[in-house]
């Protein structure tokens, strides 16, 4: 099983090790933030609350991109509705904490459960569709759930929900980081078990998978439920972290575009591709976000980037550095042929 995951080229591996080292230092030093020790060390990011926001957001998108990768990358079902799972997770926590006065920890436990059950209900009919049809149908679900929530009076409708403020940057940073680690761990386990083989077989040829004994419906629905649970967990953490949720901030379709872009750019179907994609792209997006006109252009840029990636690097940047992809006319022709554009 392991031989499919070609070791990335040395340059890429160094990049990964370097990135991981920086991340680790930050994770370990994080408790020193806003303390005298942090000041004395003279590390600017440790005294800056903005950095926590950035790091937490990056970790959140690692969860979203890795979760999307399970259904979109491994199973081959490009879901445009994953943001619904994020919103449902956020609203599960939000409703329980703000309307039912549950402790946050307890409410967070249900944040993955509700989206997973929702994935079960919509997955059975939706996953009968293929390709573009599934993509469009899932987009419909993603938009519809947000609209429904926006109109439900008991859920605060368009006013949204306010959660009691928990002042701890550190808590949310570590929670989101744990969720990211969990998402990567879950992907690793899937890739190394029977279940992962089944998902890949479905992605490569669903009828061939069925006639060798893969229960395709069960596998597809299970993959969607796992993706939904992880996405919902991130949503639940986000709700308490942000202390305010409404349709706009937990059901934004841009999140869905971004998680797809991150997974595809980094390398859909790989273990670390979505992680690399999420870190890189989220830092770029946050960098551009403050820049006025640049922010508007960045949306166009992301779209172009997605198109270029899919055409030239169908297996992502990870494969480009470590594998067979090359930027060439030949690669373009092959990729157009394979995607039958």
């Amino acid at each position: 099983m392991t031989q499919r995951f070609r070791p990335p080229a040395t340059a890429l591996r160094r990049l990964f090790v370097g990135g991981a080292a920086i991340a680790l230092v930050y994770v370990v030093l994080a408790p020193l933030s806003s303390t005298d020790a942090g000041q004395q060390l003279g590390l600017p990011f440790l005294t800056d609350r903005l950095w926590f926001r950035v790091a937490t957001t990056v970790a959140m998108f690692v969860v979203l991109a890795s979760a999307w990768n399970i259904i979109g990358g491994l199973t081959g079902y490009a879901s445009f509705g994953n943001v619904a799972f994020f919103g449902l997770g956020a609203y599960t926590t939000g409703v329980l904490v703000s309307l039912r006065q549950w402790p946050f920890g307890l409410a967070l436990l249900l944040a993955p459960v509700v989206p997973a059950l929702f994935a079960l209900v919509i997955g059975i009919p939706l996953l009968r569709l293929h390709g573009h049809y599934f993509a469009v149908a899932s987009l419909g679900v993603g938009v519809a759930v947000g609209e429904v929530v926006n109109n439900l009076q008991p859920l605060g409708a368009s006013t949204g929900l306010f959660l009691p403020i928990v002042r701890s940057n550190l808590l949310f940073f570590y929670l989101m980081l744990a969720a990211a680690a969990l998402a990567v761990l879950v992907t690793w386990v899937i890739l190394h078990t029977r279940f992962g083989y089944g998902l890949l077989a479905i992605r490569e040829n669903e009828e061939a998978a069925a006639v060798i004994g893969v229960n395709t419906t069960f596998y597809k629905v299970a993959a969607l439920m796992i993706a939904a649970a992880l996405t919902g967990l991130a949503g639940g953490i986000f709700a308490q972290w942000n202390t305010f949720i409404n349709q706009e901030n937990v059901f934004p379709i841009e999140y869905n575009v971004e998680m797809i872009l991150m997974a595809v750019l980094g390398g859909a179907g790989t273990l670390l591709g979505p992680v690399a994609g999420a870190v890189t792209l989220e830092l770029v997006i946050l960098r551009l976000a403050g820049g006025g006109a640049a922010a508007a252009y960045s949306q166009i840029g992301l779209g172009v980037l997605l198109a270029v990636t899919v055409i030239f690097l169908p297996r992502g940047v990870i494969d480009f550095f470590g594998g067979q992809s090359r930027l060439s006319l030949w690669a373009l022709r092959r990729s157009l042929r394979e995607t039958s554009v």
Partner: peptide
Amino acid sequence: RPFGSMTVRENAATGALFGQPSGRLQP
């Protein structure tokens, strides 16, 4: 209809992994 992203050996292994009537094999 081979599974394109797998090696020859992995392709054949999928048959054993899912199709054998008796018991579940590990990869």
